[in-house]
Write a protein that binds this DNA or RNA. Structure first.
Lengths: 129, 129
DNA sequence: TGACAAACAGATGAAGATATATTAATTTAA
DNA sequence: TTAAATTAATATATCTTCATCTGTTTGTCA
């Protein structure tokens, strides 16, 4: 449901959020260690997050990453959307094009995806300890 | 949540189930066309289903595949389990080892996986139109 | 200028999905 | 009874996507 990259991104964001009081930029190395993410791979993820404006990157000595917005105003979906397209969950689980919602799994599946979507939308980064 | 292979397997099984009245063995070619599955790939899937005893294969002229058990007694999970291990859904969505269930996504996620598991267990092949 | 840190490019690896080709079993027809 | 046609079984190769690693470049501060 979530790709490894998506999971890493949430982990990284929530860590940065949890440490932002310090004001001091967080090193990617530190984040990688604390959150158990391969450091070079994390680098790409952080870069993408920075491009999207969710964090700000600071180069050079005393550099690192800092939040740009209040952590309570960033929802998990915003993060995830940068790394995977969750596709239209409205579709049939079995990928049947003809399916009009009568495929036996359809109703239950759409309940599930609905809950999943709500979870992403309603959970903010600061809630993800 | 389901791999492509898992999806194909359910599609194939449900098609065989829906046609079993005829008694005549179904060709893999036919199943592939009707259910939009790459024929050679389907061949492997059917083979696996046959090994597991969910269907029986008949070689040679007039051969094909037939059901071995009443379609109302085969649940979706049985099919899926042959092609993917769904892992322990009990775990933390974010893969946090330390997570004691307090990770903000945990509660909602475990509800979701619970429903998903129930869907697989309680839906029989004949219900998957 | 030199050390530090992020940014970027590219190569590698692994898993899953798909395609190609060959082999084995069975039936039918000559 | 034999040969041809049909069909599944199997083995192998390719393609794709995602994840990971390696190395180089660029920017910044002391």
């Amino acid at each position: 449901m979530l790709s490894q990259t998506g999971i890493y991104a949430i982990r990284a964001m929530s860590y940065i959020a949890s440490q932002q009081e310090d004001e001091k930029p967080l090193l990617s190395r530190t984040i990688a260690e604390e959150m158990q993410i391969p450091v070079n791979f994390l680098s790409k993820i952080l870069n993408r997050l920075a491009q999207a404006g969710l964090i700000r990157s600071i180069r050079g000595r005393n550099g690192g990453f800092v939040m740009t917005r209040p952590k309570s105003e960033i929802c998990v979906r915003e993060v995830v959307d940068l790394f995977m397209q969750l596709g239209d969950h409205k579709d049939c689980l079995l990928g049947l094009k003809k399916c009009d919602g009568s495929c036996g799994l359809h109703h239950r599946w759409s309940n599930i995806t609905e809950q999943f979507d709500m979870m992403l939308d309603e959970t903010t980064i600061d809630k993800v300890k």
